[in-house]
Design a protein around this nucleic acid. Structure first.
Lengths: 209, 209
DNA sequence: TAGATTGTTAATCGATTAACAATC
DNA sequence: TAGATTGTTAATCGATTAACAATC
């Protein structure tokens, strides 16, 4: 109902997790669920769940709870999973290939339309898409108008390339390079810093008494 | 100096980022830096930086700032990057292979000692390690005592396997499967939910006015 | 109607920021 | 000594939790 005009980052980051759990619950055949039960399953508080859902208008019914089907589909809409964002992937190395097969199968809200690499002849395209030379990217963007770029390239090259891609109409980056992009407010950036994630885990494992 | 006895999660999650930036600054030849300058570079507040560092005892000097070399090495110690945690990787598909080559080259604080798959004969080991059958994992753990497991397997199999691995002495999971593990308090879990990350980005990109 | 459970406001908690005395 | 900048405490801000009236 209401649109995302006042939604905090912590809430946004919880939405995909709600969606995952609710999809499973829906698949299990359950038709209704209360905030209390969902909270138990997800290790959250019922209060937080109701609070979160109410950012978007409230999908429940007093005395009943939430209809699983309806709630799932509402969150699906909030996350725009029905719309498929056209995306390109740059850097078809090991990681790039892994992401390709994920994106072509069950990735949510995205449509991979182009692959690019500095040395396309070295990349065996396991996917249906051919790998283009990176110099072809400007023409490709002008014609096909991708909105999202997935960066699987070495860190040093990433910031410069990102800036260029912004000028070509890219408004979102899924960044797997090990550095941070400087794109100001013209694009959204989601960093997947595997090194940071691993160091955090290492810290915790080493800290176990 | 002081040990990690009262460090909040947000602080822990910022440590790897500090480490990345400081390593770069060190490599650039700069020998001292103030909290104000570091804050500008990292888009943080100087206050937060001083606050964060003081969780561990304070590494600066009034009137001077921080010695880059010393600060970097302190954070390196805090993150235990000198210790290499012995780790195994399970599921040598596209993603598993990508992580292998990352882990064998420049991954921080980890030492990959074993690879496992349900169908090892189908996995071309691009690395120096051979791929073992997953049934060999118990014997391997008994002998080599890995502490960390990297799960690159389908979601459905992950929770059951994780539980078994806990019993084999694993105390940390780097989880790339799309479900959450239930390991109670016997192990640390760091989830890399690529789907969640992508949905968050999709939400933001679609929300741009 | 009575019971259940939401939607929503108020209270609490924790993290971030500001301020400044300590001190190099 | 004067200037700079930390370490640390206090103030602010925002997110989470608790409480309860609304209502199905």
């Amino acid at each position: 109902m209401a649109d995302n005009f006042n939604v905090s980052n912590p809430v946004i980051r919880r939405l995909p997790r709600y969606y995952r759990y609710l999809s499973d619950i829906l698949a299990s055949g359950k038709t209704r669920i209360s905030s209390t039960e969902l909270a138990q399953r997800m290790s959250l508080t019922a209060s937080q769940i109701r609070h979160d859902f109410n950012c978007f208008g409230g999908f429940g019914q007093q005395g009943y709870g939430y209809n699983v089907q309806q709630l799932t589909s509402e969150i699906e809409k909030i996350l725009y999973l029905d719309k498929k964002i056209p995306a390109i992937l740059i850097g078809v190395g090991n990681l790039g290939k892994a992401l390709c097969s994920y994106l072509e199968n069950d990735a949510p809200g995205i449509n991979l339309i182009g692959l690019f690499d500095k040395q396309p002849e070295l990349c065996k395209p396991s996917s249906g898409l051919t790998v283009n030379h990176i110099d072809a990217i400007a023409d490709f963007c002008a014609e096909r108008k991708p909105k999202l770029a997935i960066l699987c390239i070495p860190g040093d090259d990433a910031p410069k390339l990102a800036k260029k891609l912004c000028a070509m109409g890219i408004t979102g980056f899924w960044n797997f390079s090990h550095v941070e992009l400087e794109v100001g407010s013209v694009a959204e950036v989601e960093n997947v810093h595997l090194g940071d994630s691993l160091m955090t885990l290492g810290y915790k494992v080493n800290s176990i008494k």
